[in-house]
Design a binder for these strands. Structure first.
Lengths: 226, 226
DNA sequence: AACTGATTGTGATTTTTATCACAGATGCAT
DNA sequence: ATGCATCTGTGATAAAAATCACAATCAGTT
């Protein structure tokens, strides 16, 4: 077991702000920190769910096998809990989580975690708030997914990476074209075509995986009007 | 204020099983029960969120204004909490909830509800489980939405109404064709066409809003293969 | 540096779905 | 019962996207 200090995560996760020293000790003694390389599976669909996972650093995709292909449900950024829904909703994992960058994940014993919820109302409350925020975010994305066409969805995705994840207009895209397709619900070819067109129109520039947003106004426009 | 007894709801909502008598009294004194007719708005997008709503009886649609049209996020059946995500995630409602049958809704003061979470870990835990289950359900639906074509989605929706909501193969469809389209992310015309074809093929029968599933095996097949 | 497999771009074609247009049906209020 | 508004079904057409096919590029390994 890698030596780790749960209190370190205090600043990063709202929920853990409310834990006492004893509760932190309890957490530390019942959790393990594990390193993952890009592409490695953190949580596997159909496997038994025995732990709550907490992404300490790195990025991951939450995805499941859909009717015809893989469906990426969301891309998440540390720090965040992973797989709460699967841990509390079902015994068997209903989705997978895979690292899309090198990542560090803490696995916490489910029983211990449950006890924290029982005994520490503020911790439980913050968890509920996080779950609710996630759900709202999902709702907005799914409304877009259902109604925008592909250029709008690609634009929305690029803006999300720039604004929500990397906080700058130039970033390395960690997803392949196929994965971008799985995220927005289309084929890799369609994603390619839209990106090509946006490059030709000087709205974005792509250089070996490095994406630059050149004309944010137009990109936002494409995203908004769908 | 209509006189109501919160303990009555005990059997219906897992979360409230864990409340003490004092907590029930507190709930009763800080909540109101309201009747809604079909079509009336229970929670309104963009309005301030001041209460947690609990659907005691009836059905409702959770929906929001999407980029081009209305998007129905889910159809819910009593008993269930309504609008938890909006209450805890944002001050302003991010979506609407509208009755699709006559319904009875209890509005609970948000502060009181928060205190229950703080002070009663088991109550909080059951809420977390409910939120997680909902999220899993949504994930499955969204994977379908992204990948199935319209006949598959219509079939899935009909099976869901029969199996999950009405628990029988003949039921009154409470949604219009337009609403069914908003739910599965397509136009009312496409829904109409698919239903016509299914009727011609004797897979279903429709008589003035009464839907009957005649050949469940074929319908499941259409749903599965997309 | 050469090899291998994964990834990407793009044209041609087919399939699916949206949109438009309009007629008919239905439900509700007076 | 009448009238009005909403809902529904269906054909014709247009638009969007999937699929297929294949070449080119890239990344990591030996």
């Amino acid at each position: 077991m890698i030596k780790h200090n749960c209190k370190e995560c205090k600043l990063k996760a709202a929920a853990t702000c409310h834990l006492t020293n004893d509760e932190f000790l309890d957490l530390e003694n019942n959790s393990v920190s594990v390193q993952f390389k890009k592409g490695e599976s953190i949580i596997k669909q159909h496997a038994l769910s025995l732990n709550v996972a907490y992404l300490r650093s790195g990025m991951a995709k939450v995805h499941m096998q859909g009717p015809t292909r893989d469906k990426i449900l969301r891309v998440v950024n540390a720090p965040t809990f992973l797989g709460l829904p699967t841990s509390f909703g079902e015994k068997i994992n209903q989705f997978s989580v895979t690292a899309i960058n090198d990542a560090e994940v803490c696995f916490i014993d489910l029983g211990i975690f449950r006890n924290l919820i029982f005994s520490n109302g503020k911790f439980a409350y913050e968890l509920i708030v996080e779950l609710c925020r996630n759900e709202l975010n999902d709702y907005l994305r799914y409304a877009s997914l259902a109604q925008k066409q592909i250029p709008g969805l690609v634009a929305e995705t690029l803006l999300c990476f720039a604004d929500k994840i990397y906080h700058k207009d130039q970033f390395h895209m960690p997803l392949t074209r196929t994965e971008m397709g799985d995220l927005i619900g289309t084929s890799r070819e369609s994603v390619s075509r839209v990106l090509s067109e946006m490059s030709q129109d000087k709205i974005i520039a792509i250089d070996a995986g490095m994406f630059s947003i050149l004309n944010k106004e137009v990109l936002s426009n494409i995203s908004d009007k769908g």
